[in-house]
């Protein structure tokens, strides 16, 4: 006997929709805004502005260390942060030292450094230093607090760090005015434990949005001066330095994706309650 097939209601069909349709809608929602930019405002939050304001107070001989502690899997979020902060340091005329505790970090930041140096007409070894990577994570941080040039005997291009004019008077923790680690895990803790706590070096961090909620307690306690959280943090920094670059472009797409996700959550929950009540 042929079984009677019960017709599915609209909500039942909607709740059981193939998730690949949702992927498609989200993909379109995130691609189209690149062609139709609405220029939504991206005001800077206090956590981001505090870092910017501190760098603005620096004098030409002050030293900012930017550590790109990330790999390609999180670079869409963290590379724009590095780009924005590196540009701000060049613009402010402070001594900026770029490095990484992650082996894949230097390869990712090299093109960004070169482009920024070209745009601001700055020279490697004189206006900034690119130290590359060293093995050891916490050992690198501990050593560079004691002796930077011994920790990094050569820079990324194989030049002896002793010979770099920018590092002339930069030797240890007493010479660092700000350290900012951009990381996709909890590498900021390495810097906090071995740079900030024992030597009181001012610290900030740039983290992926996933980790941002974990960092707030350290800002509230005053251990971090500020934080750039995810692509939004990078876009806020770009707003502050008045340069619309990678992050600002991406935020428009992100806003639209958020709108669609919120709609999906609302529709999904309505469907869930309607179906649940019927049963």
């Amino acid at each position: 006997m042929a079984e009677l097939k019960q017709e599915k209601t609209f909500w039942e069909k909607l709740v059981q929709i193939d998730r690949r349709f949702i992927y498609l809608i989200i993909a379109l929602a995130m691609t189209l805004p690149f062609f139709f930019q609405m220029g939504l405002p991206i005001p800077a939050t206090k956590e981001v502005k505090d870092i910017y304001d501190l760098i603005e107070t620096f004098k030409p001989n002050d030293v900012v260390i930017l550590s790109a502690d990330f790999d390609p899997s999180v670079s869409p979020e963290l590379l724009p942060m590095f780009d924005a902060m590196f540009r701000h340091c060049l613009k402010a005329g402070v001594k900026v030292i770029a490095m990484s505790l992650y082996i894949q970090g230097p390869g990712l930041i090299e093109p960004v450094i070169n482009q920024a140096a070209k745009d601001y007409n700055k020279v490697n070894g004189i206006d900034y230093a690119f130290l590359g990577w060293q093995y050891g994570y916490n050992l690198v941080v501990i050593n560079m607090m004691e002796n930077l040039k011994q920790t990094f005997p050569v820079d990324y291009y194989g030049e002896r760090t002793e010979d770099l004019p920018i590092l002339g008077n930069v030797n240890n923790y007493a010479d660092y005015d700000l350290i900012t680690s951009m990381n996709g895990s909890s590498t900021y803790m390495t810097w906090l434990l071995y740079a900030h706590e024992p030597y009181n070096v001012p610290m900030a961090c740039g983290v992926t949005a996933v980790s941002a909620a974990d960092v707030y307690p350290y800002i509230q306690s005053g251990q971090f001066i500020g934080m750039l959280g995810g692509l939004k943090g990078a876009a806020e920094y770009e707003t502050l330095i008045s340069e619309k670059r990678m992050a600002t472009m991406g935020m428009e797409a992100q806003n639209w994706a958020h709108i669609f996700i919120i709609l999906f959550i609302i529709i999904g929950n309505i469907g869930f309650f309607i179906i649940g009540r019927k049963k």
Partner: peptide, 15 residues
Amino acid sequence: YTVMARLSLFIGRVL
């Protein structure tokens, strides 16, 4: 924040 992070990764590829 996690949703935001995952979307950012896709944005990087689209760009």
